[in-house]
Simulated scan of single mutants.
Amino acid sequence: MLKHKRALGGALTLVVAMGMAGSVLPATAAAATGAQSTVGKPARHTDEARLRALLHQLTTVDGAPGALAEVRDRHRSRVLTSGVADIESRTPVHRDSRFRIGSMTKTFTATMMLQLAGERRIDLDAPVERYLPGVVRGHGNHGRKITIRQMLQHTSGLPDFLAYLKPQDVVRDPMAHHDPRDLVKLALAHPPTFKPGTDWKYSNTGYLLAGMIIEKVTGRSYGEELQRRIVKPLHLHGTSFPGDDPAIPGPHPRGYAQPGPNAPLLDVTAVNPTVGGAAGGIISSGTDINRFMGALLGGKLLRPTQLKQMMTTRPTGGSDGRAYGLGLESKPLPGGGRYWGHTGDFLGYETAAGATFDGRQATVMVNLGPGASDAQSDDIQAAIETALS
């Protein structure tokens, strides 16, 4: 069943029942394979050693078969990998691997929405009803009461469709197509979680609606707009929105899920990603995500007014200092300052990315989701913060 793992965390993780159809594979503790360096000078030894140790922990103690970190600054980039892409063949993780990035998709979706706002084709403070008349209705939910801005910031009170998606429906047919309107209707069969604008709670439903607005306003599909507005201008060769295609193009690790502690790993690589859609359906690579985040913070994708709006945050209520803007979150760095990014979970995979205004970016990706505990998510976040500190 898809759900968000934490209040902020990312989001689209299929919680796999032990009886899920597919290959049942033995659990493995993978050994670190070391770093694969790219252009530039060597990183500071202490930072790279700490990052390498965290990747090793992800692929041993935490149980992920493989892990990848792509780290860059204004002068160099480097890729470190640990473990394996396939627990049967023991193939190492490819440096250009593509992963399902789950809720990292939201940052791409919000960027396109803000581009449309900058073009005056949408108004962030207009009600959803203006763009999707009659769509948000029922059980106390109404598109006249919810603004685009609230929807993008998770302050809309919209119920999250992932809270009501039946696990057996996904498990029974992982290749099934999920229409975003049907998923929205599933959510709207339940009352709002709060009055719009009065609180914060993560909801994937709002981002399905954002994808529908993009298509309505532009007259093109979400995937076409993603290519036109972000992928082609930034030359993101490993990024795609696959629609109904269950395959991951290009080099990629197999995706695994672990239903419980010491349970066998399940190969869940092939799944119809329409269950994520504009909230979590994109495929990308560490290199592409870092390039995207660098361009976003560098003002290459949004006008200054829209970038400022995207980065106008509100606290999420957690103890770690996180705050959420429009499809983008910020968090304090241990040594001072803040970084910007997002996290993402999808069946078989988990990703996190962060960037700073001084030109540093880091993306960490693993091919296990969900794992047996939250330790994996914690160590991914620690790796991001180590890389950016």
Rank of each mutant, 00 (worst) to 15 (best):
L2P: 15
L14W: 09
L14E: 13
V15F: 13
A17L: 14
G22Q: 12
L25P: 09
P26L: 11
A27W: 10
T28I: 15
T33N: 08
A35L: 11
A35Y: 07
Q36D: 12
V39Q: 14
A43S: 13
A43G: 13
R50M: 13
A53T: 13
L55G: 02
V61K: 13
D62I: 11
A64I: 10
A64Y: 11
A64G: 05
P65A: 10
P65S: 08
A69V: 15
A69H: 10
A69W: 12
R74H: 07
H75C: 02
R76M: 00
T81Q: 04
T81G: 01
T81V: 10
T81E: 02
S89W: 07
R90L: 15
P92C: 08
V93R: 02
R100T: 02
G102R: 04
T107M: 09
T111D: 05
Q115T: 09
L116Y: 02
E119I: 05
E119R: 11
D123Q: 13
L124F: 00
A126W: 06
P127C: 03
Y131V: 00
G134E: 08
H139F: 12
N141E: 12
H142M: 00
R144Y: 00
Q150G: 00
Q150T: 00
Q150N: 00
G157M: 07
L165V: 06
D169S: 12
D169R: 15
V171N: 10
P174Y: 05
M175G: 03
D179P: 15
R181S: 09
L183E: 05
V184T: 08
L188Q: 04
H190T: 03
P191I: 02
T193F: 01
K195D: 00
P196W: 05
W200L: 01
M212L: 11
E215I: 01
E215L: 01
K216C: 00
K216P: 08
E224Q: 11
Q227Y: 01
Q227W: 03
R228P: 04
L234M: 12
L236E: 10
H237L: 14
H237R: 15
F241V: 03
G243F: 03
P249R: 11
P251Y: 03
H252T: 05
H252D: 02
G255Q: 01
G255H: 02
V271R: 14
G277C: 09
G277S: 10
A279L: 07
I282F: 01
S284L: 04
S285A: 08
T287S: 08
N290D: 14
F292T: 04
M293C: 07
G294N: 15
G298E: 03
L302Y: 01
T305C: 03
L307P: 01
L307V: 05
K308T: 08
K308E: 07
T313W: 10
T316S: 10
T316D: 15
G317M: 11
G321S: 12
R322Q: 14
Y324S: 09
E329D: 10
S330L: 10
P332G: 03
P332K: 08
G335M: 04
G337Y: 09
R338W: 14
G341I: 06
D345Q: 05
F346E: 04
A353V: 15
A355P: 06
Q361M: 08
Q361T: 15
T363K: 00
P370V: 01
P370F: 00
S373K: 11
D374V: 14
Q376V: 15
Q381V: 13
Q381K: 14
A383E: 13
I384M: 14
T386V: 15
A387I: 09
S389R: 14
S389G: 14
